[in-house]
Simulated scan of single mutants.
Amino acid sequence: MNSFKKPKVFSFFSGSGFLDLGFEKSGFDVVFVNEHHKPFLDAYKHSRKKMNLPAPKHGYFEGSVDSEPLKRKVEFLIESLKKTDIVGFIGGPPCPDFSVAGKQKGKDGENGKLSKVYIDLILKNKPHFFLFENVKGLWKTAKHREFYDEMKSSLSKAGYFLTDRLTNSIEFGVAQDRDRIILFGIAKSLLPQKYNENLLNNEFGWMNHALYTRDGVLDKKLWPSKSTFEENSVLTNNWTSVINELTVEYWFKLNNVDNHPNAKHYFNPKPTTTKFQSTEEGEVSKKSFKRLHRYRYSPTAAYGNNEVHLHPYKARRLSAAEALAIQSLPFEFELPNTMSLSDMFKTIGNGVPFLLSKAVAITIYEYIAQKNLLIQQDIPYLTKATI
């Protein structure tokens, strides 16, 4: 009888592991984790321990993805693993240099350069498949799109079929308007001889696990605009068009945020700050001091660069527990008490929403299962001659 093997995954730019958790919960075995910022890696380890998930078989690597020790370790591990297992790379390189709201340094910025480093790591080690995630600015801004297309061209020439999509988290049940470009690649040598990229685009089910369409749920006519702020107010949901499962309040209740281990982790306002009382519920048009509406989805969870998101009906900023709920993490996921508030909100804002990561992971799993790549068998050994 044929036996099915879990695909092995190497994770890069792992942060506190939101993307990885989606893969872990979808049939993949995350065997190697890389993150350069120690507090994020500590949080990754802490959350897995709390959730009773195993540590990666081949360990954690704290350091830059561009470091020689990391490159040597990855090369050593993957050469052995891909002889007997389907192996993939997943990662979302830091993206502020491509962000529409950022400084637009692009591929020449310190963070922007890391996208090419990740692609080069793929080209050198030739995993059977890979996932690349980044902000929509890389795909929609002309000068960044040229760089993105160059990376895709390199991957195609190296022997990968590619498919990508500008995806919004809200399509998959996340109470957040968050656009991201997601690129999936698979080695041509694993597929039938006459297979082509058009077939991949047709067969890869980007929307197979979507619950909504972006344009359908982001129609402003469906949602309340603003309500007068009053601390601890009670507001009845009289908007019949509201999709309850996509509201901030739904996720706050689902995750029992007031009793979550990170419930008290939030920045306290300065006594002289009046915006905590004066900003209306639902006022999200400004760059900072956005007050979420309890019966609406959140704007993109970005908590750096002085972008402040306020609680809908409390005169304070969001807690880490509330921000985790907006990122659709399960209640069981928690950040360590020893982590600084700055690091907590940075890792939350940087992370891929859990429900999005899980949907993409399931889609990849279903695709490679459809191609019979999960059955224990002889796997084409990827060398320079075959890819």
Rank of each mutant, 00 (worst) to 15 (best):
F28K: 04
N255L: 04
T347P: 01
G88Y: 00
G88C: 08
N134R: 03
R317N: 12
L374C: 09
L138E: 00
G137K: 02
L53Q: 07
L138H: 02
L21C: 05
G15L: 06
S11I: 02
W206I: 00
K264C: 13
T247V: 08
F161E: 00
F28N: 02
S285N: 13
Y195L: 01
K226Q: 14
K287P: 11
G205M: 00
L70D: 06
I375D: 14
D219T: 07
C95M: 09
A101W: 08
D177C: 09
K220V: 13
E146D: 14
T236N: 13
T338Q: 15
N134G: 06
H46G: 04
T163P: 00
K188C: 05
L246Y: 04
S288K: 12
F289S: 05
K286Q: 13
I368K: 09
S64G: 09
R145N: 13
S227E: 14
V234Q: 15
E283S: 15
F129H: 00
S285K: 14
L355Q: 09
K71I: 11
L310E: 01
M1G: 12
F333I: 06
E24T: 06
K346C: 07
F13P: 00
P127L: 07
L246G: 02
L70Y: 12
L70R: 07
N134P: 04
S241W: 08
V257Y: 09
D108C: 11
L292T: 01
P353N: 11
G159N: 09
Y365L: 14
N238E: 12
F12L: 11
V174H: 00
V117H: 07
S342R: 13
N268Y: 13
L123Q: 07
G205K: 07
F18H: 09
P127I: 03
N2K: 15
G92D: 04
N201W: 03
F10S: 01
E110N: 14
Q277T: 14
R178C: 02
I90F: 06
S14D: 11
P312A: 07
L191E: 06
H58I: 06
K143D: 11
Y367A: 08
N202V: 03
I364T: 01
N52W: 09
F184Y: 08
N125Q: 08
I181Y: 00
K6N: 12
L374K: 08
R72Q: 14
D219M: 10
A210K: 03
V33L: 05
L121Q: 11
R180T: 05
F204D: 03
S153G: 08
L292F: 10
N350P: 08
V360P: 02
P56W: 01
D20H: 06
N337F: 08
Y295Q: 05
V242Y: 05
E62A: 12
E197F: 01
F89V: 03
F229A: 04
L356N: 02
D97S: 13
N259H: 15
P96C: 08
F130W: 05
G22K: 00
V31K: 00
T167D: 01
F132M: 10
S26A: 14
E249R: 09
D164F: 02
F10L: 08
F276K: 03
V87E: 03
G282H: 05
F172V: 03
